[in-house]
Simulated scan of single mutants.
Amino acid sequence: MKTAILSLVAFGALGASAANAQDFTSNAKGDLIVYARLTQVAPAKDAAILTAAGANSGLKAHVTNDIKPTLGFTYFLSDKVAVEAILGTTQHDIRAQGGSTDVLVHKTWVLPPVVTLQYHPLPKARVSPYVGAGLNYMLFYGDKNKNGFTVKVDDGVGYALQAGVNVKLKNSWLINADIKKVYFNTDAKINGGALKAKVDLDPLVTSIGLAHQF
Rank of each mutant, 00 (worst) to 15 (best):
T74G: 11
K144W: 00
T186C: 10
K68S: 09
Q162V: 08
K144M: 07
K45S: 14
T74A: 14
V105N: 01
V151M: 04
A53R: 05
L195F: 14
V115R: 04
A133Q: 06
A10C: 07
P112S: 09
I179K: 04
L174C: 05
A163L: 08
T64Q: 13
K180L: 10
H92Q: 14
K68M: 12
A96E: 09
Q22W: 05
R37C: 08
M1Y: 10
V167G: 07
F149L: 00
T70C: 07
V103D: 11
T74C: 06
G132V: 02
Q162N: 15
K152E: 13
F149V: 00
K196D: 02
L6W: 12
R37A: 10
H92S: 09
S128V: 08
S172H: 15
L210M: 11
D66S: 15
A85V: 14
Q91L: 07
A10I: 12
Q22S: 14
V165P: 03
T89N: 15
H92G: 03
G164M: 02
V81S: 03
A82P: 01
N56A: 12
T39H: 01
I33E: 03
A85N: 08
A4T: 15
G72N: 03
G164K: 01
V205F: 05
A61N: 09
F73C: 11
Y35A: 06
S100C: 02
F214K: 06
G164T: 01
V110F: 08
Q40T: 15
Y130S: 03
A82Q: 02
P43S: 05
L174T: 00
Y141S: 07
G164N: 00
L50A: 11
P123M: 10
A16D: 05
N65K: 13
K170N: 14
L6F: 13
Y130W: 07
D200L: 03
V103L: 15
N65W: 07
L201I: 11
V151R: 00
N65A: 11
P203K: 02
L210S: 09
V41N: 06
F76M: 08
V83I: 15
S17D: 11
L14M: 15
S78H: 11
A188E: 13
L104G: 03
A82R: 01
K189A: 14
V182R: 01
I5V: 12
R95P: 02
F140Q: 07
V81Y: 04
A36H: 02
K60C: 01
A53N: 12
K60Y: 12
G193V: 08
Q97L: 08
S78P: 01
G99N: 08
L135K: 09
D200W: 03
R37H: 07
V41T: 13
Y35M: 13
G88T: 03
D200Y: 00
K107P: 07
Q22K: 13
K29C: 05
